[in-house]
Computed example of a mutant assay.
Amino acid sequence: MPARRRKITNVLLRKTLDELWKTKSPAWRRVYELLNRPARQRIVVNVSKINRYANDGDVVVVPGKVLGSGELEKKVTVAAFSFSYTALEKIETAGGKALHILELVKENPKGSGIKIIT
């Protein structure tokens, strides 16, 4: 008996995965692979981890959810599938910008200069 394919019911996730698959960029393909995991294996990153690994002015991609635990002292652009309310507040008060992954794909289709934080 063949393995059953799982059906993704979240319309926004399906649309995001479709757009990422259309790009030929290795960076966006890697984000696709990380987002296409089962829900239990999806990536969750705290703001403190972004603060630890990013520099001022970096563009950071989180293929999952960003949570608000910790402090953010750097001005970074963060693209993720979803954000908690406190994470959005902390990114904006630090002078950064929060985007959905689809917005960043449209701005940067080649995926150059991005950091993927897992």
Rank of each mutant, 00 (worst) to 15 (best):
L67D: 11
P38G: 14
A39Q: 11
I43Q: 04
S48G: 08
F81K: 11
F83T: 08
V47T: 14
K97W: 00
D56H: 06
S69W: 08
K49M: 10
P63K: 09
R37A: 15
E103G: 07
I43K: 05
S48L: 09
G70D: 13
R37E: 12
T93F: 01
Q41C: 08
Y32I: 02
K90R: 11
K24A: 10
V61S: 03
F81I: 09
F83V: 05
R37D: 03
L35F: 10
V78L: 07
T93V: 13
D58Q: 01
T93Q: 10
I91T: 08
N46A: 14
L104S: 02
K65A: 12
A98W: 08
G95H: 01
A94N: 09
S82K: 14
Y53L: 13
S84R: 02
K24L: 08
V62G: 06
I91N: 03
R37M: 09
T23K: 15
N55A: 05
R29E: 10
Y53Q: 07
K22W: 07
P63D: 07
E103Q: 15
L34R: 11
G95P: 00
Q41A: 15
A27G: 00
A39W: 06
A94T: 01
V31E: 03
A94L: 06
H100C: 02
V78Q: 03
R37C: 03
L67T: 15
L72W: 08
K90P: 03
D56Y: 02
S82V: 06
V66H: 09
K24E: 14
N46Y: 04
E89M: 12
K24Q: 14
L88A: 08
V78R: 00
A39L: 12
V31I: 15
K97L: 06
A27H: 04
S84L: 06
N55V: 00
